[in-house]
Amino acid sequence: MINYALELGQTAKPEALLFYILAPLAVAAAIGMLVVKKAVHSAILLAWVMVTLAIFYIAQDAAFLGIVQIVVYTGAVMMLFLFILMLVGVDSSESLTETIKGLRWIAITASIGFGGLLISLLGRASLGRTTAGLADANSNGNVEGLAQLIFSDYVWPFEVISALLITAAVGAMVLAHHERTVKRVSQREQSQARFRSGSLAAAAGLPGPGVFALHNAVDVPALLPDGSPAPSSISATLKARGDMLDSTQYQLDNNDNAAEDK
């Protein structure tokens, strides 16, 4: 696949085909990123733009960067984004009311001006220039060429980058650190509170679901010694969902009668 893409990059015509198919798709996905309502959809569209860019890198003789783009961006960064989206709430949909009146139209007009300026500038700057190509620079292989540069000319920036990475990791840890406002209740204190609450029944702990009932499934309340069901033995989640079964139908004496009738 990569070799095929590299071959595409070296011949002009297939690369043009690749470009004219993928570039409109990338631009469409990028515009879609702005107009879709849900942040998750934006993330998926951005992942697509990043994959497209990786293909362009590979097509432009930057095989190493293409792979790094997929591994770092679509692999790590986008997963981090999706992870945070799940944490913050997937369906926290954004209000589309403008806080500053007319901001959207001002932004779009200004961006058309900015983009037009950038593109016309590029058109003037690179007109008439021939592409040197990377055949010479990549003669020992793209990864080897990059390694040579990084560990000779760019070794100082490389060291600084490592310091930056450590700083970022420490910074994220500091930001994620959560200071407790109230003291954590220890197991010993919980136990003492149970015994001092007055009733010894509270000290014994709650019955598990299904105890003494015919079925020991999680949605069947336990039967107390007097035969009455104990709803407190069922998880609050199941209770809230209405999935709790009525355990009186599973009472032992009812079933014994049924067996005798048979």
Partner: peptide, 9 residues
């Protein structure tokens, strides 16, 4: 040009 477009978007 593609890069400029994506940057603007």
């Amino acid at each position: 040009y593609l890069s400029a477009l994506l940057f603007t978007i």
